[in-house]
Design a protein around this nucleic acid. Structure first.
Length: 348
DNA sequence: AAATCGCCCAACCGCAGGACA
DNA sequence: ATGTCCTGCGGTTGGGCGATT
């Protein structure tokens, strides 16, 4: 059942400061203040918007209101569609499974609601954000877990608080695995993106930023991971792949003009985003804490454990190629950071 | 019954950045 | 190279509404 609020908020014109009067209107207004409705949408407005999008598709939000006969700004229309009217939106209570996923994904992505939403089909970033702020956050605090860091509020890791000794031993092992794992990530990334897929990526525009499927675009990946405290390291994988592409002379002219598979892209870019985020966090932890054994912080290891397992499974898909990788050698971070030999080996 | 409180969540705000002319 | 357009994102707001006093 669609819930319609019956009142309209008072108009605030601060939102139209993009119509920068002090700087002599350096840009045109993003929407006209006069005569535009704000606040709750009526059923009639919803119907107009749905009908228009069904006929003409999404996009062109700036001109949509006029064409659809709506006295709203384009932004408001886009938001209404994206957060409420889209047919694939799943409404209602969040299941326990969904909540668990949100918590895990939040541990990886932080407040990157759009990144989390992409992993929960039918849920919008706004919905997840609201649910996090109103329910999950409180629940975590009640359990003594800091919703920001996902660590115990009393200083211990949130996971397995009962067996600290065991945890401590595991952490050392995990820490020593981390540098090796980063290299595995690089290797796995190379495997996941086959040359044929790379050709599609290149053909679709030559760079990752040209990706325009409705889900993750690489530009968004970069954007979301660039909030890390080590912004450069977050994009190392992307940069490295680009460099390897150059080195191996893969160019748009090399490939046929088959239609790229959008679903394949989704997987690729989701993987890319996660791997990039992980490597970013890893590099950040290692570099910023200057541990001579290149161990990650205990908590970071635990937080990433399940994720590492997941990615390791990806890497194990091709045992023949993985067999060439020396598991016993822990790559010093200086080497990992600079060379990403796994990718080089794969593409080289 | 009326007033108040606090939660929920749809909608808004402001900013960032890619695309394009 | 520059300015503008357009879209997406995370943070915030405030009205509705049920619970409580």
């Amino acid at each position: 059942m669609i819930h319609h609020k019956t009142t309209t908020r008072s108009l605030s014109f601060s939102s139209f400061n993009c119509y920068n009067q002090e700087s002599r209107m350096v840009r045109t207004p993003c929407c006209r203040a006069e005569g535009l409705k704000k606040g709750a949408w009526t059923q009639e407005e919803d119907h107009k918007l749905i009908t228009y999008i069904q006929r003409h598709g999404e996009g062109g939000w700036r001109t949509l209101p006029d064409k659809a006969g709506l006295k709203r700004c384009g932004k408001s229309c886009r938001l209404r569609w994206a957060n409420y009217l889209r047919p694939d939106i799943k409404r209602g209570e969040f299941s326990q499974e969904e909540e668990d996923s949100i918590i895990k994904l939040h541990a990886i992505h932080g407040n990157k609601w759009s990144a989390i939403a992409r992993r929960l089909p039918g849920r919008t970033d706004n919905e997840i954000k609201n649910h996090w702020n109103t329910h999950i956050k409180k629940r975590l605090v009640k359990k003594g877990i800091d919703p920001l860091t996902h660590k115990s509020l009393n200083g211990k890791s949130s996971d397995h608080q009962d067996d600290d000794d065991q945890k401590s031993n595991k952490n050392n092992a995990l820490g020593s695995l981390s540098a090796r794992f980063l290299n595995r990530v690089a290797t796995g990334f190379g495997k996941r993106i086959s040359h044929s897929v790379l050709s599609d990526i290149i053909r679709s525009g030559g760079t990752f930023t040209s990706h325009t499927t409705p889900t993750t675009s690489a530009s968004e990946c970069e954007k979301s991971s660039s909030s890390s405290s080590t912004p450069n390291s977050s994009n190392l994988l992307i940069d490295q792949v680009s460099m390897v592409l150059d080195a191996t002379s893969l160019s748009s002219s090399t490939f046929s003009s088959d239609t790229p598979d959008p679903l394949m892209y989704d997987h690729i870019f989701d993987d890319l985003e996660d791997m990039t985020a992980f490597s970013s966090r890893f590099l950040n932890d290692v570099v910023s804490h200057d541990d001579e054994d290149f161990f990650m912080l205990d908590e970071s290891c635990l937080e990433n454990t399940s994720y590492m397992r997941e990615l390791t499974m990806i890497l194990q898909e091709d045992k023949v190629e993985t067999a060439g990788f020396d598991d016993s050698y822990v790559t010093p971070i200086s080497e990992v950071d600079v060379s990403f030999k796994g990718i080089d080996n794969y593409f080289g």
